[in-house]
Amino acid sequence: MSKSVLLKSSLAKKYWMALTGLFLCLFLVGHLAGNLQLLKAGEEGRRAFNEYAYFMAHNPVVKILSYLTYISIIFHVIDGFLLFAQNRKARPVKYAHTRPQENSSFASRNMALLGTLILVFIVTHMQNFWYKAKISNGPFPLHTLVKEIDNQEYDPATGAIVNKKQDVKLYLLTNGQYQMIDLEDKDNIELRHNTEIYSKKLDVKVAEGYKDLHSLTTAFFGHDNSKYGFPKNDLATVAVIFYVVSMLVLIFHLWHGFSSAFQSLGLRSKKYAPIIITVGKIFAVVVPVLFAVIPVYLYLTK
């Protein structure tokens, strides 16, 4: 393999765009599958979502995928800007009068603009959730699972100790088991790094709690979750509109991007082109619409 060709040539840049783009499409599917948990009602939904979030943050395979996602985004962005800059240079004098709408779609001509808007969205989105969940060292409320419990019986599904007619707080132990812990027992229990629960006496991590991302999310889109420690977001309306509009932008980006990736990789042929284009368009609409449904739903059900 000649390395310089695969880095420098204009075609190679397109391959990278296509590969990273398609990978990000896969990421979207995974992300969407998790986010759809937000549509589940009540405590059940809250728990499902938080479990999903926990899984995403802790599974080693997912971890690799997530790093790949970061790299893909960064590469897609940098490569995209390089291409854009080159393309601008390729026509130093612009047409005085041009009617590109006669020969190409709006989306196809404005991938860089659409991509930039999506980048703005991603940054905002990450600040809204990812940063708070992952980076920020500030206090972050943990998920308190409220269960109706039979007397001292074990739930066969989760292995949690259950107690009848009593609200208990369950946390996931580092070994995957559930245990009842009284966080108010300040003498024996200490919370470190936001989610890790230590026994003061033994100085041993006895459990790890969920960060309550579900409540964070619902609060962000307008739910009054002050009981969980999340103040209501006064700008929820703006947030919902911003998220919906961003998904609209994503529709356009994918509308062209999906089938374009196949074209760039040379995977399109007369026989398969119609399938690729159709699948691409369905993907481009369905995925962002489902994403957009979530904040709208949350906003409306507050």
Binding site: L11, K13, K14, S104, S108, L267, R268
Partner: peptide, 30 residues
């Protein structure tokens, strides 16, 4: 410039050369 698969070329080409050729070249180059 770099191809971004807008397809404008195929539409405006007086000989209606197909975009499929670009896919084939991408394949050949890869």
């Amino acid at each position: 410039g770099n191809c971004s698969n807008t397809g404008a070329c195929e539409v405006e080409c007086p000989k209606e050369i197909s975009l499929e050729n670009i896919a084939r070249m991408n394949r050949e180059f890869l």
